[in-house]
Amino acid sequence: MTSRVMLISPAISAALREARFDDDCSLDESGLRLALAAAGSLPAVSTVWVSPTARCRETARALVLDAGSVPGPAGLDAGRWRGATLTEVTEKEPEALAQWLTDPQSAPHGGESVRGLCDRIAHWLDGTAARVTGRTVAVVEPEVVRAATVRALGAPESAFWRIDVPPLTATELSGRAGHWNVRLGRPLGAPHDT
Rank of each mutant, 00 (worst) to 15 (best):
S106G: 06
A74K: 02
T53A: 14
E93S: 14
E91N: 15
P94A: 11
R61S: 13
R61F: 12
T53G: 15
A60V: 02
V70G: 08
R115D: 01
D126I: 09
R55D: 10
S69D: 11
A67N: 06
G79R: 01
E91I: 15
P73S: 07
A107E: 00
D103C: 09
R80W: 05
G110L: 08
L65A: 02
W81P: 04
T128C: 12
V89E: 05
S69N: 10
G83T: 06
R55K: 14
A84K: 12
R120E: 04
L117R: 02
D77R: 02
P71N: 07
R80A: 09
K92P: 15
T53R: 14
G75F: 00
L63R: 01
G83L: 07
D66K: 10
G83N: 08
G110E: 04
E93R: 13
A122F: 01
D66V: 10
A67R: 04
E88M: 12
A107H: 02
R80S: 11
P52K: 12
H123Y: 13
G75A: 03
P71C: 05
P94T: 07
L63S: 03
G111P: 05
R55A: 11
E88T: 13
I121D: 01
D119P: 13
E88R: 12
L63H: 03
T59Y: 01
G79A: 03
G111E: 03
L97V: 04
R80Y: 04
V64D: 15
T53N: 12
A54H: 13
R57C: 13
L125E: 02
A107V: 00
R82H: 10
A107I: 01
E112W: 03
S69W: 04
L65V: 01
L86Y: 14
R57E: 10
V70K: 10
E93K: 12
A84Q: 13
D119F: 11
R80H: 09
S113E: 01
L97M: 09
R55S: 12
E95G: 15
E93N: 13
R80Q: 09
T102G: 11
P52G: 11
H123P: 14
E58W: 06
T59S: 06
V64K: 15
T90A: 15
W124S: 07
V114E: 00
S69R: 10
Q99L: 11
A84M: 15
D126Y: 09
D77Y: 01
H109Y: 07
